[in-house]
C-alpha cells in the first residue's frame, strides 16, 4: 500500500482497476439491506422474481453499496475522508442469484484550498458487472480528503 500525500503522487493510479471480487446476490442480504434502510420495498417481489414482468431492478437502487470492492492501491491523504455524494447509473436488472463482479478505480483528482485547508477531491468509479458480462450499474463517488 502506497501512502500518498498530494495530487501529483496520486495521478499515477488514475484508471487502474482493482482486482475483481465476485459477489452472489443473496436473498437474505437484500432483505437485510431493505430492513436497514427501513424500506417500504415490497418483499413479495422476491417470490415473483423469476416470473414477474418487471422492468426495474429487483434489488433496491443502492444495494450495490453493500458489495465490497478490493481496496484502491493507495492510502487516502489527509486525516479525514468525507463522502460528498454519488452518481448511480443502471443498465440492466439485477436479481437474486445473480453473480456481480465488482471493480473500482480512481477516475480523477482535484486539489482545492478551502476553509479546512488543502482538500483533495477524488472521483472514484465502481463497476458492477453481471454473470453475462453485462454492465449492471456504476457508482461514481466524490470523496474529499482533508
Amino acid at each position: 500500500m502506497n501512502i500518498m500525500t498530494d495530487k501529483t503522487s496520486l495521478e499515477q493510479f488514475i484508471g487502474i482497476e482493482t482486482n475483481p471480487i465476485i459477489h452472489s446476490i443473496e436473498r437474505l442480504a437484500v432483505l437485510n439491506f431493505c430492513s436497514a434502510i427501513n424500506s417500504s420495498f415490497d418483499k413479495s417481489l422476491f417470490q415473483l422474481s423469476n416470473t414477474a414482468k418487471r422492468l426495474q431492478p429487483i434489488v433496491p437502487p443502492t444495494f450495490f453499496r453493500s458489495l465490497e470492492a478490493n481496496p484502491l492501491p493507495f492510502n487516502f491523504p489527509g486525516k479525514r475522508l468525507l463522502d460528498a455524494g454519488s452518481q448511480w447509473q443502471y443498465f440492466c436488472d439485477t436479481n437474486i442469484g445473480d453473480l456481480i463482479t465488482v471493480t473500482q478505480s480512481l477516475q480523477s483528482i482535484q486539489e482545492k484550498e478551502g476553509k479546512l485547508g488543502k482538500m483533495i477531491f477524488l472521483t472514484i468509479q465502481i463497476k458492477y458487472m453481471n454473470q453475462n458480462k453485462d454492465l449492471a450499474a456504476t457508482q461514481t463517488s466524490t470523496l474529499i480528503s482533508y
Binding site: I37, R54, L55, P57, P61, A84, G85, Q87, W88, Y90
Partner: peptide, 25 residues
Amino acid sequence: NAFLGELVTNWIGKEGKLLELTCQY
C-alpha cells in the same frame, strides 16, 4: 441516498425503470 432511491422507485412503480440517481450531501 438509499432514501432518495426508495422515494423514486416507489413513485415510478413496478413498470418504471430507474436509469440514473445522483445524490449530493
